Amino acid sequence: MSVSSSCLLLLALAALAVASPLAVVAWRPWPHHFVSRSAVNATAAMNTGGGSGGSVDTGGLGVSKKYEGSSEFVKLRYHMGPVLTANVTIHPIWYGAWAPAQKHILRAFLRSISAASAPHPSVAAWWRTVRLYTDQTGANVSAIVLLGAERSDRHYSRGRALTRLAIQSVIRDAVTAPRRPIPVNPRGGLYLVLTSSDVAVQDFCVQACGFHYFTFPAIVGYTLPYAWVGNSATQCPGICAYPFAVPPFAVGLRSAERPPNGDVGVDGMVSVVAHELAEMASNPLVNAWYAGEDPCFPTEIADLCEGIYGTGGGGAYTGQLLIDSHTGAAFNLHGVGGSKFLVQWIWHPYLSYCSGPNALDHQ
């Protein structure tokens, strides 16, 4: 449900990591660890397209399959709830101080979700994996995702420290505003609360970089799917703006990747926003698509692929990324107007592994 500080979990996986071939451009926040020469050679063959699906013997540490995130232990199931089959309209609520350039980056990403004309690999192609999820009638998640009416709260009307529940009050303020309220759309509306870098939110940087849920009628007056994502630039960029910032444990071990739009915090937010949108579309009321038996702690379609951005990704290793030849920035998806973004992959419901349009087997 949330992009959490499970980046800390990646620390434990670091000791099991296998170094990648030099030709692979990816982010790894620790020195290379060679388990064995045979394992390294096998990994190189897999990441460069060699072989037809062999496995890597990591000396008794288990078998790593070719496909990113694949596991016989993942039991993603449909729990009969709705998915967003109607045209989706995203309503951003800008809480705090936002520069026009920052808003432009996030708006460009949201507009790119339905922009079929963007070059390959595109944000729209990434969304096609989300669209594979269906409801009990067989209807797919909508292909149409629109940027709707917005609301700005520059005066921090709920303060600079928000609880999770206070996020719903921010939404209520937006939909009940006396002037230009955001429309209420329980069927296809998604309400996206974006907090600026000087706003503290409960569990931010400790357990979550973002989360989604649905509003309570007792607070907002309606049941609406919503998400919150914070700008981590001044609070925890090494955790929530990965891989554009180096985690504290990796300072001095290597440098961060350059963000494609020149803003570490906002470029980091893009992937978290994508994560939450994918989960809201496939599990808006937390009773549709997720793994596990407890709906209070579901493992959703983006949770399964956290930290995976390209072929070979997994275990704190991003996988192969694209590099902008002019700026040297890392990205994996194209958007509208020449924009570029780095967005995590999504669990593919038919292939049962993490997938994205920049995968080597999609080229």
Rank of each mutant, 00 (worst) to 15 (best):
S4Y: 00
S6L: 09
L9I: 13
A12C: 12
L13G: 15
A14R: 13
L16C: 04
A17Q: 05
V18I: 15
A19F: 00
S20C: 08
S20R: 12
P21Q: 08
A23M: 06
V24T: 13
W27K: 07
R28L: 06
R28N: 09
A39T: 10
A42C: 10
A44G: 08
G50A: 15
S52I: 14
S52H: 08
D57Y: 08
D57Q: 13
G59Y: 03
L61Q: 15
V63A: 12
S64T: 14
Y67I: 04
Y67P: 03
E68I: 02
L76N: 06
G81W: 01
N87L: 04
V88E: 01
I93V: 13
W94A: 04
G96F: 02
W98E: 02
Q102K: 11
I105R: 06
L106K: 05
A108P: 00
L110M: 15
S112D: 05
I113V: 14
A115Y: 15
A116R: 14
P121W: 04
A125L: 08
V130N: 06
R131C: 10
R131H: 02
D135H: 10
G138R: 10
A139R: 15
A139E: 08
V141I: 15
V141S: 07
R151L: 05
R154I: 09
Y156H: 09
R158E: 00
L162P: 01
A166V: 05
A166T: 06
D173W: 01
R179K: 13
I182Q: 06
N185Y: 06
S196I: 02
V199Y: 01
A200G: 11
V206T: 15
H212Y: 12
F214L: 09
T215N: 11
F216L: 13
A218R: 12
V220L: 03
G221P: 01
W228Y: 08
G230Y: 00
G230L: 03
S232T: 10
P237R: 08
G238F: 01
G238H: 01
I239W: 00
I239A: 14
A241V: 04
Y242R: 10
Y242K: 08
Y242P: 00
P243R: 05
P243V: 07
A250G: 08
V251G: 04
L253A: 15
L253P: 01
P259H: 06
D267I: 07
G268L: 02
V270T: 08
V273P: 00
A274H: 12
E276F: 03
L277T: 07
N283C: 07
N287V: 11
G292L: 09
G292T: 14
E293V: 09
D294L: 05
F297N: 15
T299H: 09
I301N: 02
A302N: 00
G307F: 05
I308M: 11
Y309H: 13
G312T: 07
G312Y: 05
Q320T: 10
I323C: 05
H326F: 07
H326T: 15
H326S: 12
F331L: 08
L333K: 02
K340L: 11
L342G: 03
L342T: 10
V343F: 03
I346Y: 02
P349G: 07
P357M: 06
